[in-house]
Amino acid sequence: MVVLTATDARADDANGERGERSWHIGTKVTTDIGPHRFRLGVGAQIAQVSVTLITDPKVFIDNSEQDLDLILEWKFGSDRWSPLIGWRTSSVSIDRGRHWQQHLLLGVSGLLPPLLWGHVRGQFGTELVFTTIRHGEGFETEWLSVESDRHVRDLVSINLFLRFDYVTPF
């Protein structure tokens, strides 16, 4: 009985259901072919709000493409589902400079059953990616325009993702 309770407590910690403070570090896998498909994330949850930074560790040795996501999630209601909002900064190397793309992320994630005796939290979700601003050296800054379908069609995508995080309270 004691063991079961302890396991449940760890599962609650992993899923952040008790609104405690916790760190998390893990990986994100996405169907989005824009950024790298396998990336690492680190973040914290305080009460019902979770903040995560996600990037590809390869950026430290390869600057051909770099992506950095900042994700905010709110765990409300049942605690199983969280709406998310985020911002992704991407840049690609080009001759004599870099070209930048700024993306707004909107989505929702759901918790999977905890893994490895509650130490690992799994999440799946979907996110809409709006390429909002494009800019760079020698280029006119372009904002997302909704004047017509052709203006917007290539700059919005919908993707699925999976995240697995090791969670520990602090």
């Binding site: 824009g34 493409e65 690609v92 700059l155």
Partner: peptide
């Protein structure tokens, strides 16, 4: 072909 140069286009 593309309408706008996205990261997906560069991936392709």
């Amino acid at each position: 072909w593309m309408l706008d140069a996205s990261l997906e286009s560069l991936y392709a």
